[in-house]
Write a protein that binds this DNA or RNA. Structure first.
Lengths: 201, 201
DNA sequence: CAACGCTATTGGCGATGTGCCAATAGCGTG
DNA sequence: CACGCTATTGGCACATCGCCAATAGCGTTG
């Protein structure tokens, strides 16, 4: 008797396997250059199965992005007590840089996903995770009565953090120590001096 | 005599017309949802003509992005003489916000284009324009002996500027005055205090 | 342990998009 | 007015996508 033509896996098992392949391919290549055919081939299944599990290709891509951002969100560290603002900023920045370093590929893939061209659902996902980290920052720094304006300032700060991380890990124009100095001092100044001034504007 | 079935235009004329249509569509919809068929239809020509002028669809898209970024680069204002650092920063920020406001659609489309997914040529284009504006900033602020580290810090600043502008024009979480305060004070602190500290790290 | 049932998986159809190119037809020129 | 250049058309070949009916692993049951 010949061995069966294909292994029949459980729903979640197969789903996760295909998702893993898709994750790798979408982080390595532009969206349009990743075909469902190629994903299926690498996963060792027929293309139809990919659509059976995820529907449209776009839906699969969104799943991938959701997973990437979720991965990053869970990396938020616990908050120690009784530190000064300076120490807390230092700690947050160090944690942030560690996380970015450890998941460089994932991190850039997630951040890069944003611009993928006016896709409302996609930008919603990315913005939500950005908001999550901002909330985490607010808690960590114990800012009294955080306003929406402060949140906006911190979101802007996350834009600076994003590029600074790129300058460190990709472009290598900054060392880790330099990136740390830049991020820590910027955050401190923003929260302590600039944000209040912005509030008053 | 029936009127001719199509108007025959000059090479540059038709090129520009198709490019204009592509520009509009690519700034309104995600890449994958803009078909060459649709571009051709809106331009009132056959699809083959689009490929005759631009080759692949990707090439057309790159042309669009090049045009968008070029548009923004030409908006750099001349530099008045004899101002203090503070005044110069104020002026630069004001100019920047004006430009972003006037070309909001174009601006966000260009910025959003970056993430389109690991496309090397595309990121090259976006980075080059970012570098251009950084050089312009350096000239404007008359920083003595700008180092690569300072350039990296300013690129990070442009990340902050990007999100801050979004918070003003899209999310509307900041007023123009607030965005101005945020950008001006951040830039000043970065150049005067933080960048030197980063250099020493 | 053979028959059965559930559903994971296949394989293929139809529609759409892309790249290309030979044939056609505006339109300026001699 | 005839001619030639080339802008423009229209269609072929192929890839991808979305979908779905048929098939076949594999656990369950009598």
């Amino acid at each position: 008797m010949a061995s069966p033509r294909y292994r029949r896996l459980g729903r979640d098992e197969r789903r996760e396997q295909i998702l893993a392949v898709a994750r790798r391919m979408f982080t390595e290549l532009p969206y349009t250059e990743v075909s469902t055919t190629a994903i299926a081939r690498e996963a060792g299944v027929q293309r139809g199965l990919v659509h059976y599990y995820f529907g449209a290709k776009r839906e699969l891509f969104l799943q991938v992005v959701r997973h990437l951002t979720a991965t990053l969100a869970t990396q938020l560290p616990p908050l120690p007590e009784g530190l000064s603002l300076e120490e807390m900023v230092d700690l947050c920045v160090a944690h942030f840089l560690d996380a970015a370093d450890a998941n460089a590929t994932t991190w850039f893939a997630a951040v890069d996903a944003e611009g993928f061209g006016q896709d409302p659902e996609l930008t919603r996902i990315v913005h939500r995770t950005r908001d999550l980290t901002v909330e985490h920052l607010l808690k960590a720094l114990r800012v009294p009565g955080p306003t929406d304006t402060l949140r906006a300032v911190l979101r802007a700060y996350s834009g600076l953090a994003e590029v600074a991380t790129r300058e460190w890990l990709q472009h290598k124009a900054l060392s880790r120590a330099q990136a740390h100095t830049l991020l820590a001092r910027s955050l401190l100044t923003l929260v302590r001096d600039i944000a209040p001034a912005v509030e008053r504007s």
